[in-house]
Simulated scan of single mutants.
Amino acid sequence: MRYHYTGPADIAAAARHSPPGTPIRSTDDLKTWLAAADPRDRDDPHTYVITTSGVLLLGPRRSEHVACAAGADVLAAGEITVDPHGQVIEVTNQSTGYCPQPSCWPAVEAALDRAAIPHPGAFTSAFVFRHCPTCTHLNVIKDDLYICALCDGPLPPSPSLSPPNP
């Protein structure tokens, strides 16, 4: 499944002036990227997306997913933490701009496997997102409660491809 950016328009506009993520196609690419990263950010989770062609792109922790993806659709997006040896120790689908479902894991796994980057075999934390059809608020589902945190309205059991219009 392809995910379109559904976050705030002002973030997408600002992201047009940010550098895109760095393609990671091998462990050497990953080690080079980590060596060049700001030392304060090396142990933090990094922003990642998987392009529609299946390539892993990495960006600094404080970068937006839409910037990492250069505004394009993605197969997955979230945060990834890598140890100094180039092994993924944590990986999530936490991206409120793209709201990828946990079912996007195979795209992440395939990109990491192609690059020969060791990984945990599944998301270490997986998130379910829903936009409220009543107030349009973005919700992270917790405890299987499909109730809007803002207006208490019911949330759809299945994701929509874009937030509803107010």
Rank of each mutant, 00 (worst) to 15 (best):
P45G: 07
P45R: 04
G59I: 11
L57I: 12
T32S: 04
T22V: 15
I24Y: 02
L30K: 00
S63N: 07
A69M: 08
D41Y: 02
A36K: 09
R42A: 01
T32C: 02
R42P: 01
H46L: 10
S18P: 05
A69F: 05
L30I: 00
A37Y: 00
E64I: 08
S63K: 10
E64R: 12
L34W: 00
H65P: 04
G59V: 09
S18K: 15
W33N: 01
A35F: 04
P45H: 09
P39K: 03
T22S: 10
H65A: 09
V49K: 04
S63W: 12
T27Q: 13
S63E: 12
A72E: 08
T47N: 15
A67K: 07
V49A: 11
T32H: 03
A69I: 07
W33R: 00
R16G: 12
T32L: 09
P19W: 14
E64F: 10
T27R: 15
G54M: 03
E64Q: 13
V55Y: 05
S18V: 11
A37P: 01
R42H: 02
R25L: 08
G71I: 15
D38H: 03
A67C: 03
T47R: 15
T52H: 05
I50Y: 03
L58C: 10
D29N: 07
G21I: 11
L30D: 00
D38W: 07
V66H: 04
A67R: 07
A37G: 01
W33G: 00
